[in-house]
C-alpha cells in the first residue's frame, strides 16, 4: 500500500479541529518522549504518535496503547520547543479512539467508564465503589482491597456514598456534553 493510500486527510482535519493543535509544527526532536514519565511503558512514544498524526496515519495513532497510558502530566506540552500541545493531541486521539471503539488499554478505559458512571449518578466520586467496580470489571478481585481496612480504621473512607441533590443537573451535563461531542463528530 502506498503512503498516499494510508494517509487519511479527513481524520487529520478532525484531529486538528477538535484539538486545535497543528501537528505539522512538530519537528520530531523527541523532547516529549525524552521527558515523558510513562514513555518506557508505551508501545510508541509521544514523538512517534505525533509523527503518525502529522503523516495522516491517525487511524493507527488511535490504536496505540500510548494515548491511553498518557497521564496528562503535560510535561511534553510545557517543554515543547515548537509550542505543540502534545498532551492535548493525546487526549483528543483518546476521545476519538473511544468513539470508534479502539480501546488498546481495556483496564484504563474500564476505570474511566466506572469513574464517569459513579460521577454521573452521584455527582461525586465514591471510592469504595470505584475500587470494587474496577476489580469486578478487570477481574483482579482483590487488588488494593488490603488498603480497605486501614482506610476504614483511619476513618478515611465513607462507606456510605454522598447523597446527591444535584443528580438531575449532573445527568443533564453528561447528556448535553455527549451531544456536543456528537455534533462535532457529525460536522466532520
Amino acid at each position: 500500500m502506498t503512503l498516499q493510500e494510508m494517509q487519511n486527510q479527513e481524520l487529520r482535519d478532525e484531529l486538528f479541529l477538535r484539538s486545535q493543535v497543528d501537528v505539522t509544527k512538530c519537528y520530531q526532536c523527541g523532547k516529549c518522549t525524552a521527558g515523558c514519565p510513562v514513555a518506557e511503558h508505551m508501545d510508541y512514544g509521544p514523538r512517534q504518535v505525533m509523527r503518525m498524526a502529522q503523516m495522516g496515519l491517525v487511524e493507527e495513532a488511535m490504536k496505540t496503547k500510548a494515548i491511553w497510558l498518557c497521564a496528562t502530566c503535560e510535561t511534553c506540552s510545557t517543554r515543547c520547543p515548537k509550542g505543540v500541545e502534545v498532551a492535548k493531541v493525546m487526549e483528543t486521539l483518546r476521545i476519538m479512539a473511544k468513539e470508534r471503539g479502539y480501546i488498546a488499554e481495556k483496564n484504563i478505559d474500564k476505570f474511566n467508564n466506572i469513574y464517569n458512571t459513579i460521577v454521573k449518578s452521584l455527582g461525586r466520586m465514591y471510592e469504595p465503589g470505584l475500587i470494587v467496580s474496577r476489580n469486578v470489571a478487570t477481574g483482579h478481585l482483590f487488588q488494593d482491597t488490603s488498603y480497605g481496612i486501614p482506610y476504614l480504621a483511619k476513618q478515611k473512607l465513607n462507606l456510605v456514598p454522598h447523597k446527591p441533590k444535584n443528580s438531575e443537573e449532573i445527568k443533564s451535563i453528561f447528556a448535553k456534553a455527549a451531544a456536543m461531542d456528537e455534533a462535532e463528530r457529525g460536522n466532520r
Binding site: 496528562t72 483518546r94 473511544k98 451535563i173 456536543m180 461531542d181
Partner: peptide, 9 residues
C-alpha cells in the same frame, strides 16, 4: 476520566 472521554464533559 471525564476529559479522556469527552472534551465538553
Amino acid at each position: 476520566a471525564a476529559h479522556s472521554t469527552s472534551h465538553w464533559l
